[in-house]
Design a protein around this nucleic acid. Structure first.
Lengths: 339, 339
DNA sequence: CTGAAAGCGCTTACAG
DNA sequence: CTGAAAGCGCTTACAG
């Protein structure tokens, strides 16, 4: 590369001012058509690269949106991201992604980075133990926040998510209608809002049917395939009739449970009923195909993205964030209790 | 927030110069201990936020590393990312992530963004059809490049990846040693360097054993679970004895194949042998557990991260990038041909 | 050990 | 429609 191309080198070459070049490149109607064309051509020829740092220092808008999720490897969050990408791509925003892995320190450090880069806003599924003060502090520093999938009690920011309690209620009820009474709940016991809400849906359905919940049928705190696999083996290794149905915290757990049961010689969909949650793409091609609940994660992602863009653009009317209605997806993994 | 806290407001409050504040906050030994302490305290009290855009405009180092992968939802790339994160976290680099989904336009647009932000370097698994000129252009614009997992013929930049050809050779050979001769290859036929290398390993093993490769036993171009599921059903729906063993392009395909076979009533690990590639975490808990090849993706990620940091720091001695040795992981999904 | 000053590359009033 | 000038918030020679 010879010398560095900037607005001023272009201006100099063309004998105009930097103001004119700046305006022309951004298609300002203030600039005469001929001038604009001439400038744009010169910029393209010279291989000019717009320096966003300089622009953002001046305008204090960075074009960066922060995105915080527990773990992008989890298809649930990946699908949220997908929704966000679809929506933000249109506005040519760039985003900075962080997997906080539910470590509040990681989250904090990343938020600090966002502030340093002058991010315009952040979409987050907050880490466990995020306080409303944490969120208020971000906003006080000029970083607007929108939540997705998880909510924080007391935080005054929009939240976009599915109705977890209702969805798990529906799927538990589906099992009860099939005739099950010994229904286990596996996974997600960690204290996220999602975990609490989903467990509450399960308990509400049992209560509604006058089924006494059994503590030892509620197992596992993680939300990975491996954890589902391990938990179900733990539950059934000694007592093959511990339960006739299993409500899983999410599809990943359920997939692990299907595999774990298979490894014990118990056939899901025949010997025992298993349900998932989220309806990730994979749940259609498990064997047996998984009965689950569509949770609208892509939709939540799109809503969150749209909301943050509106806030950034200074709109005050943020669309009403009512819960996304869950939908039951009955497939092959549920069956009546075995006689 | 009252007024904005900057270096100059702190300097003013304390009656020192901005140069001193700047130096003090970065722990320069030039500043007297007492002065430094006083300044640091004042900055912390005021809730000072370092403005990286301003700093980076001045120093032309941004602290940003770009990361380009086809799709972060794919555990193979997620594990590479994990390795990179582990390594880069230490240097407090921030990174900008892009899923190019093998669209050269998406990749191009993202690289443009990196240039605008003044990224210090980029680690990439290039999209299909990336040319050596594309990479040369990035470097010419001051953006050093390191490749991971995939390579580009003719590009003069370091590459960190496993020996795909050798690994697939090993696993195909394992099947041949078990007595198989009708061995299919499913997935990955798209023209990535990985696809080409892996197919070559399969063909080399067949040739070495004097087995004639059969065109119609090479199926599927994608690398997803769903694609494996669909391909194997297509292959076996009409002819249940189309093959006695299947080499899959990767573990995801293999997982889809396991499910697809199950859905057809064919038992993998008993009726037919199936192998994966990559040894992602999930392959240990499939049923049956998957025979596969460890590909060292985390290691490749770490190597790539270390290399880009060295380049950024101006070191010229970049560690020699020899291929990572693959390792065969024999589990339950492979068996001799059924009599 | 500390300060005054220039400059990184933009955009934005303000004049004309 | 175009230009001259200031300023965003840092860091870096340069003096002292």
């Amino acid at each position: 590369m010879a010398r560095k191309i900037t607005l001023s080198t272009i201006a100099e070459d063309l004998g105009v001012s930097t103001a004119t070049v700046s305006l022309a490149l951004r298609d300002s109607p203030l600039v005469a058509d001929i001038t604009r064309e001439k400038i744009k051509e010169a910029a393209a020829d010279a291989g000019y690269i717009y320096n966003r740092r300089a622009a953002s220092l001046r305008t204090s808008r960075s074009g960066i949106v922060g995105l915080l999720v527990p773990d992008i490897m989890n298809p649930f969050f990946a699908e949220i991201l997908h929704g966000i990408e679809e929506e933000l791509g249109l506005d040519r925003q760039t985003f900075l992604l962080c997997n906080h892995r539910d470590k509040i320190e990681t989250q904090k450090h990343f938020v600090e980075t966002l502030l340093q880069f002058g991010a315009d806003g952040v979409i987050m599924s907050p880490a466990i133990d995020t306080s409303p003060q944490d969120i208020a502090a971000m906003e006080a520093n000029g970083l607007p926040v929108v939540l997705v999938a998880r909510w924080v009690q007391g935080a005054k920011v929009p939240v976009y998510r599915g109705d977890d309690k209702k969805g798990v209620y529906m799927v538990t009820n589906h099992l009860i209608e099939l005739g099950h009474t010994k229904i286990a709940f596996i996974g997600g016991k960690r204290v996220t809002s999602t975990g609490t809400d989903r467990l509450a849906g399960y308990l509400a359905a049992l209560e509604n049917a006058n089924i006494e919940p059994i503590e030892k049928l509620q197992l596992g705190s993680e939300r990975s395939r491996k954890s589902g696999y391990d938990s179900v083996r733990e539950m059934f290794q000694n007592d093959k009739e511990a339960a006739t149905a299993i409500v899983c915290f999410n599809d990943l757990i359920a997939i692990g449970v299907l595999n774990g049961l298979n490894s014990l010689g118990i056939k899901p969909g025949e010997d025992i009923a298993v349900t998932g949650y989220d309806d990730i793409a994979e749940s259609e091609i498990t064997s047996p195909a998984l009965t689950t609940v569509w949770n609208g994660q892509q939709k939540a992602g799109r809503q969150a993205a749209r909301a943050i863009m509106r806030i950034i653009k200074g709109e005050t009317e943020i669309e009403d964030n009512k819960l996304i209605e869950p939908e039951l997806r009955i497939r092959e993994s549920t069956c009546p209790p075995k006689k």
